[in-house]
Amino acid sequence: MSRERLQNCIIRSIRIAGIIFFVVIVAFPFYWMIASSLRPLEEILMNPANLGLDIHKIDLSAYYDVLFDHGFVRYILNSFYVSIITVALSVALATVGGYAVTRLRFRGQSFMSYSILIIYMFPAIVLVIPLYVIFSHMGLRDSINVLILVYLAQTLPVALYMLRSYFKTLPLEMENAGLIDGCTRFGVIWRIIIPLSAPALASVALYTFMIAWNEFLFAFMFLDTPDKFTLSRGVVQLAGSVHLSKQLVMAASVLVTLPILFLFLFFERYLVRGMTSGAMKD
């Protein structure tokens, strides 16, 4: 075997080993979560180290219990409500805001466009106490809608930043063509910018949804009434309850994870590049 082939062989095996290593690291917790949620409680207690899942002993009762006995239907609806409204507002505001700072000339434009990110520099933990105090005084604390406001403040800077970078890549001449063809500014945004920004808008929507869906700290601090809990808050409630049963917590965790997974699969096709090909000369 020549030196070169040996080298290639070694590199290839190292690469495969690396891939397997990372797949195991990433996938194993998921597997364990799903497997545990499907096993009956007695089996988990009797044989906690057993990693295998017996197809014949699959038990879906944990999901039933979580959904209907522990109020997770309500939590899921709450989470969807918070996330979808946050996504809608964030995408809408970031689109017009991002367009304004990229294309329009006004006093303080560059300051605006850079100060957007400064907000993002403050860690959430710094903000949570003052916000807790302020919202408590205003009597707004235990409310899902206030949560939306907080999530917007968290997601909007990055959403604006992402869209601004994308809008900069869109050719100005195309917008000018739209203006001459008889569009207003909003017409240009609606009929030209938005259709062409589908990949960027999809990324922003996905990012915002994930933040809002997974957020825990503010939901934990602000929400007191179980009826208003979001999913992540609900899982912690469940995990902290006296009669902790592992397969219930695992089933709840699966319920938190699944929507994000499906969302990724659904949005993936919009994340393709090359939407503007054909507009310009080349």
């Binding site: 050719p171 000018n176 203006l179 001459i180 063809d181 008889g182 259709p195 939407m275 054909g278 310009m280």
Partner: peptide, 30 residues
Amino acid sequence: LTPRDRDVAMVFQSYALYPHMTVAKNLGFG
């Protein structure tokens, strides 16, 4: 007057066609 109200038409160096529309839609857009 805005570009819309001046009633002028422009052909750009880069053509600046609307990539998400068919040729017919591009022509009829204005």
